[in-house]
Amino acid sequence: MLILKVDNLLLSSLLAFVISYLLGPLVNYMERRGLNRVASIMFLFSAMSLTIFIGLSSLYPLISSQLSSLKSDLPKYITGTTQLIKDTEANFSFLTAILLNFDLSEYVESLMTTWASSLFEDFPKYISKSLTTAMLAPFLAFFLLKDGQRILKSIFSLVPNRFFELSINLQHQINDQMGGFIRARMLEATIVGFVVWAGLWLIHFPYAPLLATFAALTNLIPYIGPLIGMVPPLIIALINGTPFIGLFLVLLPYAIAQIIDMFVIIPLVVAKIVDLHPVTVIISFIIGAQVMGVLGMIISIPVTSILKVTTTTVYKHLIEFTP
């Protein structure tokens, strides 16, 4: 599989699909209002680029000041985390002495120091990689939106007659499900991000925009994502010596975001789109994590639901209805 080997191509293709699924309904809406399809796509891409440009240029001072203060504060947080682990180790020495015969705090400190220094040293490399993806993904998305129907038609023309209707039906169902799923996940991430940002901003917690973005992104990982999102603010609060009520206030927006997610968005939007048994979700999640890491965790559910739709549709076409 070439797409898995070429650097950035898989991620760019996935992002292109996400962009095309997000913009597809808008392009169709503009086309319905009488605008040419290509003009609609160009207009939306220009509007999107302009919004990103204005957003980034207005947020640049904030982001750069947050990043530079994070860079200067990071050694403090690393020492603080090590101290925190040391204290916890001392409290549970009767357990750790049996289970762990190495110095956990020293191990964590060296690990975090390496990670923190590489984070800032490799920053230009990450930026150049992200830029390639940021350029390639919209480029692919543009053609997916413009020529998607034509590309599909060419693919269908290669399908043998026996499987023609089956493949059309299958593509339609997968497309429907993926479109709904991606839009629902993006809605989830946006709501989580906004709720966390508003909550942290209200209590004047440091790095609120960065932490909210991190929470929105990690929320895309099923089950453990929201927990991962809570770790950085928790560490910052503990190191800053925030009292118990402060810790509660820091975690409150995360809890509210998760409550909205669990009781409103998931039952009303996601569950209707992806009907998978929890055991299936967990197994696919573990397989995804083992095979492709974080990306595998994020795409495990859509890939499993595609497999489910494929199996049921093929079964219906070839077995259930054939005399």
């Binding site: 129907q149 034509r150 038609k153 269908f156 023309s157 007659n161 023609f164 209707e165 089956l166 059309i168 039906n169 339609h172 219906k316 076409h317 209805f321 054939t322 005399p323």
Partner: peptide
């Protein structure tokens, strides 16, 4: 631009009774 052109040989089934049709 939307429709599909399909070619069939003599005696080839286009669809069969009982199959799902779209």
């Amino acid at each position: 631009d939307i429709v599909h052109i399909r070619k069939f040989n003599i005696a080839e089934n286009i669809f069969k009774q009982g199959e799902m049709g779209v």
